[in-house]
């Protein structure tokens, strides 16, 4: 009980400290093809009027850490400034033959696979650098994957505040309730990063996360 109170107090102190830091790092994490870069582009378009990275239906399109500095968002008279960090999707397996099946040539597929493995390693290394993290999950996919559980467990162990986004709610197969049931201890916001559905609620969620 007492330990919990002390823990909560320390978390608040740390969060306030991060708020005062000049460069708060907001990371977008999740498995490949969840829509991290689509969400990063949505945020950058909404507040900077430009894209952050390219998107593709083929997994592992983002293979390097991408950073967009000094994004300021506003909601209900409040302002929040952060450096947005878009990370490569974390996976436990990468098979260059999957890229060939998606239409790539042998050499291109092997290069993409090699770069993708490096991207996953970088994403994991960067966990320690984050002040706050948005987990972007594809709401049409099974949320009980070990990758999701491992990412969230690592953030929890580092006491980094987490917001879960259930992306692709514009699709019929999307099941937000399943994501909520899988991670009941976290706020889950259903959005469509592609079409901007519910995006204001997402921004409000970001304010709630760092407050």
């Amino acid at each position: 009980m007492v330990a919990n109170i002390i823990k909560k107090f320390m978390n608040k102190v740390l969060r306030n400290f991060f708020k005062k830091k000049k460069q708060v790092k907001l990371g977008l994490y999740g498995p490949p093809n969840g829509g991290k870069t689509t969400l990063a582009n949505r945020i950058c378009q909404d507040w900077l009027g430009e894209d952050m990275g390219s998107v593709s239906n083929i997994a592992h399109e983002t293979r390097e850490i991408q950073i967009k500095e000094q994004i300021t968002i506003k909601s209900k008279g409040k302002e929040l400034t952060f450096n947005l960090v878009d990370t490569p999707g974390i996976a436990t397996k990468i098979d260059y033959e999957d890229f060939i099946k998606a239409g790539m040539k042998d050499r291109e597929a092997k290069t993409r696979a090699k770069e993708a493995t490096k991207g996953v390693i970088d994403s994991i290394k960067w966990l320690d650098e984050m002040d706050t993290v948005v987990i972007v999950l594809d709401a049409t996919k099974d949320p009980y994957s070990q990758v999701n559980i491992t990412i969230i467990g690592n953030l929890q162990a580092r006491e980094i505040p987490v917001l879960i986004v259930a992306n692709k709610v514009d699709l019929k197969k999307a099941k937000i309730k399943k994501i909520e049931a899988a991670f009941p201890q976290y706020d889950v916001i259903g959005i469509s990063a592609k079409y901007g559905d519910n995006i204001n609620k997402f921004y409000e969620g970001l304010f709630a996360l760092v407050d």
Binding site: K93, I124, V147, T150, N154, A157
Partner: peptide, 11 residues
């Protein structure tokens, strides 16, 4: 949890 992340990275 940290070892799980290491397992993925080393994999």
């Amino acid at each position: 949890k940290e070892e799980e992340a290491d397992l993925i990275a080393i994999t």
